[in-house]
Design a protein around this nucleic acid. Structure first.
Lengths: 225, 225
DNA sequence: TCATGTGAAACGCTTCACAGCT
DNA sequence: AGCTGTGAAGCGTTTCACATGA
């Protein structure tokens, strides 16, 4: 129930699992389940109970010995740890097919990410709206990012334009970027960057089919990811 | 230059990095670069040279001491390891906004993944076409999967329908599945499953912004993923 | 001399096993 | 009795450092 103020070094895998727990807890809440043990959470996430407890233990003590965890409280605690629900404003750069699909992705807003501004090179789109978001010329990135308090950028431009888009976001003061193009981009120290790349996942599957028997039978039994 | 026939246990991270190397090698080929050292590949992928050499060493000897690797040969070797370029036939289940965006994702076909059939619940879509692919009713999954030799399935249906879609693919004989809904699904032993989940990545970024100083300064300097 | 390929060391993450509470 | 929280052990992955060979 109590959180330590200390922020320890937390691994990427732990953070990913926290996301997964968070989603399972939402589902359990909808199912009307009020108490969850580490065993139950482990089953629902394809990890071990010890892993679940260890993950939580990095951030504080959220359960009651002999009882388990209160679903509602735990969910709120994880939300706080992840920083979701505090309503991040997000900039979407690149309104092609992928960008448009992202924009309409409902779950996204539900998790507290608000696409506050959209940027696209195409003058025909500029000045228009998608949903309730205005579409701006990329030149206005800095101005709009600062005006709207945008902290996270999503890049969905063609590969050739990816680095320029990232640079512009960084210049505008955005400190975290999610990039969809396959092209690798570089960011200065201190800027957080992640990729979403479906091709990597497909090639991973391809590898598994092409190399039967190569599979590590460790880590998350057909895991979190 | 020589591959061992033995398939060792290969970690997930290694396979992901192979995907990344593969992409960088394609870029280098386009740039007209013919020789690459592990150092060069490391720089371009944000990993260490030793990591690059170790990754390759799991599959054979692809370089020449004192020289480096031939870009073209190495790229082909990795393609073979990953099993790309052998033209996988893929089934796309769920033709909503996400499904449609995936269908039109060009890079995808370029990497040798061919969406050979599309399935959707909506009778209005069934019997029609998207691109050169026919749209079928889900009931015909098994028949079509076997007829077209489909080995991989992509699930882009709403969360509530995810498990049913996965079950149907498995029943149809598909052995590898890429799932987009946030809902966790289960598959029998031996079926390969991966998720693409943008929310996890966004929450990861959110965590990093909400917990400054929590970042592990290990593993791929703003890494492969 | 230069860069690969690779055992061995270092490191970090996961699992174990039990003390501590309820 | 039951389940959490956690130091310590176990194990897999990354890095080191050097032998090997061009």
């Amino acid at each position: 129930m109590k959180e330590t103020g200390t922020v320890k070094a937390v691994s990427d895998s732990t953070v990913r699992r926290l996301s997964a727990y968070y989603r399972r807890l939402s589902e359990m809440e909808e199912e009307g389940i009020e108490i969850a043990s580490s065993k139950e959470l482990a089953t629902r996430n394809g990890v071990t109970p010890a892993q679940v407890r260890k993950d939580f233990s990095l951030f504080g003590k959220f359960g009651r010995r002999g009882q388990g965890y209160t679903v509602k409280d735990l969910k709120e605690a994880i939300a706080k740890i992840l920083g979701v629900g505090r309503g991040w404003n997000v900039a979407l750069v690149g309104l092609g097919k992928v960008g448009a699909a992202l924009f309409h992705y409902k779950e996204f807003r539900k998790q507290g990410f608000n696409i506050a501004a959209v940027f696209d090179n195409d003058p025909a789109k500029q000045g228009g709206h998608i949903g309730d978001a205005e579409i701006y010329a990329p030149e206005r990135l800095k101005e709009v990012v600062q005006e709207k308090g945008i902290g996270i950028g999503i890049v969905s431009v063609p590969g050739e334009a990816a680095q320029a888009a990232v640079d512009a976001l960084v210049m505008a003061g955005v400190r975290a970027i999610l990039s969809f193009p396959m092209r690798r981009v570089v960011v200065p120290e201190g800027i957080h960057l992640r990729y979403v790349n479906m091709a990597v996942e497909m090639e991973g599957l391809s590898f598994l089919l092409a190399n039967p028997g190569s599979k590590r039978h460790r880590s998350s039994p057909e895991g979190v990811r």
